[in-house]
């Protein structure tokens, strides 16, 4: 096996292990799948006045809220969770790269939460009977793939913050809604004061929401959607580059501070 194959295998197994662990916990599935459905229902009623065409906007937007929440709570906790179960030590002491493991784990969580987007699509179209059509299905599908990649890369950074900044885990609840607001999941950021716009531009979920909404409703040109992908990929690449150094730093710090395990702390 060469190094790429080894890393790929690590990532795949981390993905599988995380998937299985989540699937054996009915409550996790409940959380991952049901919460976005609830947001979808709520947004549907709140935005009822906008007419039935908005149903697809609601499906995509609430799906994005689910993706972000899962990324924040489950993905972000990827490292800390292992620490609680005492498995972080064997992971770190193995020759495998922790980054690859975390990438696999976050990917599993994000993939599962995509299920909720499909769920709310089905709920709203079949049970509630709203017309749901994707204006540009092919572009939408690719946008979704790029989104998943971009969010997982973001999750990689996020997970390290949980270790690097002790108070970060305590602030997750505070971080859930700002992203909903700043990334235009369920209302356009044009409604927000102008000074927040540059912040939105720095967040890859913003570009993801724009591409997905645009492809779903047909409100963006192909060129615009391509540009959104470009932004997401550019951010992802820089996250991957940064994460290399970041993971070195956090692992060293954890070994100095004796925080790889919770015992004794």
């Amino acid at each position: 096996m060469n190094q790429v194959q080894k890393n790929l295998r690590v990532m795949l197994l981390a993905f599988e292990v995380e998937m299985r662990q989540n699937l054996t916990d009915g409550f996790v599935i409940f959380g991952i799948l049901i919460q976005p459905l609830l947001v979808a229902l709520m947004a549907l009623w709140m935005l009822k006045g906008k007419g039935p065409d908005y149903a697809i906007f609601v499906v995509v937007g609430s799906g994005m809220t689910g993706l972000w929440t899962t990324l924040l709570f489950n993905g972000g906790n990827s490292i800390t969770g292992e620490r609680w179960t005492g498995t972080l030590e064997p992971l770190v002491a193995s020759p495998a790269s922790l980054r690859m493991i975390i990438f696999g784990k976050v990917l599993a969580n994000v993939a599962q939460s995509l299920g909720s987007m499909i769920g709310s699509y089905l709920l709203i179209s079949t049970i509630l009977g709203y017309p749901l059509t994707l204006a540009r299905p092919a572009l939408f599908a690719v946008s979704l793939l790029v989104t998943v990649f971009a969010l997982v890369c973001f999750g990689l950074i996020l997970a390290s913050f949980f270790i690097l900044i002790p108070d970060f885990a305590r602030m997750v609840n505070t971080l859930e809604f700002p992203i909903y607001i700043l990334c235009g999941f369920l209302f356009p950021i044009a409604l927000l004061p102008g000074w927040t716009t540059p912040i939105s531009y720095l967040l890859s979920p913003y570009w993801a929401a724009q591409a997905l909404h645009g492809a779903a409703q047909g409100t963006l040109t192909t060129g615009q959607i391509l540009a959104d992908w470009g932004w997401m990929l550019a951010f992802s690449l820089s996250y991957i580059l940064i994460s290399g150094k970041l993971y070195q730093v956090i692992l060293r710090k954890a070994r100095v501070d004796a925080t790889l395990d919770i015992v004794g702390n």
Binding site: D25, V28, G31
Partner: peptide, 23 residues
């Protein structure tokens, strides 16, 4: 359950919808 925070979040969101706070 291992991951109660997600369950809590779900109940919390249910309250957001049903309690009349937002609709």
């Amino acid at each position: 359950t291992r991951n109660v925070m997600l369950v809590n979040n779900t109940v919390y969101f249910a309250l957001l919808i049903f309690s009349g706070a937002n609709i």
